[in-house]
Design a binder for these strands. Structure first.
Lengths: 230, 230
DNA sequence: CTCGTGATTATGTATGCACATAATATCGCA
DNA sequence: TGCGATATTATGTGCATACATAATCACGAG
C-alpha cells in the first residue's frame, strides 16, 4: 500500500505515530523528507499533515516543524443526537407530546442566559418525547421571542420545537452541558422513574449571531447512555 | 474582507449558509462559479468546500454538486477531558490516591470487553482523583495484562494510570459512553456524596489495533458538568 | 557579553494545469 | 418506446512552482 494520495499518506503517517515510531512530543520528519520517502510532491504531504493537525494528532509550527502532540487527549467527535433519529434508529416509533406551552416571565438566571429584558416574557414549554408508548426524554425549553417572534404562533403538531427552530432560525453556535440530575417528583412522574433516580441530562443554549435563540434541558429516561467512538 | 485564502473563503461561504442564503438541502453554486466570484482558483474554492463538507455543513457529490446539509444536526467536537488538566484549569491542585490495586479475575462482562481468556487475571484498580483536598472523581479501571504486561509493575506514584498508559501504549481507538449513575454506598463514601445521589459517569474502552488495552469507569463528584461548544 | 539585524528554514497557501472518477444527460439503435 | 453506449459535467486529486510568514540561528557592532 503506497498510494500517494494525501489520504493514503495521512493514514500511513498516522499508523506510524500510533505504532510509536516517534515519542510523544517528538519532532517527526519535515514535509520535504516525507515527500521524498513517499515519492510525491511536498504539497501532498502538506495536506496530509495539516489534516492530522486538525485532528489533533500532531502540532505544527512554522519553522518549528511538526511534532506528535504531547498529550494526545483524544478529540471525540460526536453528533448532538436528534431525538427523533435516536428513537427511530432503535426501531421504535417516535412521538412527542406537548405538556405545557405558555408565555412566562423567565427566572433571572434564564433572563441572563437568553438576554431577555426585565418585564419581557418568553415562550416556555415542556414536552415529552416518546419511543413507542414509553417516555424517552422530557424537555424543558425557553425560547426568546425577541429573536424568534414567530415561535409563539408556530404549529408544533408536526415538527418538534427543536426541528421547527432548526428549520426557521439558522443558528450559528451553541453551548452544551452534560450532567446527572436527581429526578424531582415531576420529572419522575413524567419519565415513569423513581423520585431521586439518576437521570442523564443535556442542556443546550444556541445563538444566532449575537442573539440567544433558545435554551433547553433534556432529561433522558432511566438507563440512557450517550455513546460515541474516538 | 475579501481574503482569497481557502480559510477566508470557507468562512465567507459558511456565513452565507448560516445567514440562510440557501435553503436546507439546496444546491449552492459550483466551484467554478465561486472561483469567479471570489477571483481565485478553483482549487482554492475546492479546499474551502471540502473543509465545510468535513465539518458536516454541506454535502458534496461528484457531478451532483454541493448542497447545504438537510438536517444540520450540529457536530460537536470536544476533547475527552484529562482530569489533571480539568482540575488545574480551575486553579486547584491535582492529586490522586490509589485506593486499591490488585490482580483479579474479571467478571464475565469485563472478560468479553477486554478479550481476556477465562482463567486469566487482569489488573484492577480503584483510585480517587482529588482537587485540592476534595474528591473530584472516582475511577474503576481494568487493564489487560495480555496487551500491557508491564502494567502490573508500573510505578504509578507520579503519573496516574491513565497518563502512564497513554505514554506507554499508543492507542488507536476507543469507545466512550456517558450516563448517570446513582451512588452506591461505596461510591458515596469515596466521593463524600449522599447514597443515591446522581453522579455523572463516563466509561471508556480503548484498543491498540485489535487488542483491548483498558476499560475504565469514572464517577464524577456532585455537580460535575461536562461543557463544550458547537 | 548583549543586543539587534539579516540569513535560513519549515510550514502556509495560491495558482494553473492535467487527469481521474462518478453521476447524470443525451443520443442512437433496435 | 426502451435500453445501452457515449458525452458531459462537477467534484477529487496530484504536481510544480512561487511567494508569504514565522521562528530560529549566526554574526557582527557596540
Amino acid at each position: 500500500m503506497t498510494a500517494t494520495t494525501h489520504h493514503g499518506i495521512r493514514e500511513a503517517i498516522r499508523a506510524r505515530i500510533v505504532a510509536g515510531e516517534w515519542q510523544l512530543g517528538e519532532l517527526i520528519p519535515g514535509e520535504v523528507e516525507f515527500a521524498e520517502e513517499f515519492g510525491c510532491a511536498r504539497t501532498t504531504v502538506n495536506r496530509a499533515l495539516q489534516a492530522l493537525a486538525e485532528e489533533g494528532i500532531v502540532e505544527r509550527k512554522r519553522k518549528g516543524g511538526t511534532r506528535v502532540r504531547p498529550l494526545p487527549s483524544p478529540q471525540a467527535q460526536f453528533r448532538i443526537p436528534v431525538i427523533r433519529e435516536q428513537v427511530e434508529s432503535r426501531g421504535q416509533e417516535y412521538g412527542h407530546r406537548i405538556v405545557l406551552r405558555e408565555l412566562r416571565d423567565p427566572p433571572d438566571e434564564m433572563r441572563t442566559r437568553l438576554q431577555i429584558g426585565s418585564g419581557q416574557k418568553a415562550a416556555y414549554m415542556e414536552s415529552l418525547h416518546l419511543a413507542g408508548s414509553h417516555p424517552f426524554a422530557f424537555e424543558r425549553r425557553w425560547v426568546s421571542l425577541d429573536t424568534v417572534p414567530g415561535f409563539a404562533e408556530a404549529d408544533l403538531s408536526e415538527l418538534s420545537a427543536n426541528e421547527w427552530l432548526i428549520r426557521t432560525v439558522p443558528f450559528s453556535r451553541g453551548e452544551v452541558g452534560l450532567t446527572a440530575t436527581s429526578a424531582d417528583p415531576r420529572l419522575a412522574a413524567m419519565l415513569q422513574a423513581e423520585p431521586g433516580e439518576a437521570l442523564f441530562t443535556m442542556d443546550r443554549t444556541t445563538w444566532f449571531e449575537d442573539r440567544a435563540v433558545t435554551a433547553t434541558t433534556l432529561y433522558y429516561a432511566r438507563g440512557y447512555r450517550l455513546e460515541f467512538g474516538i
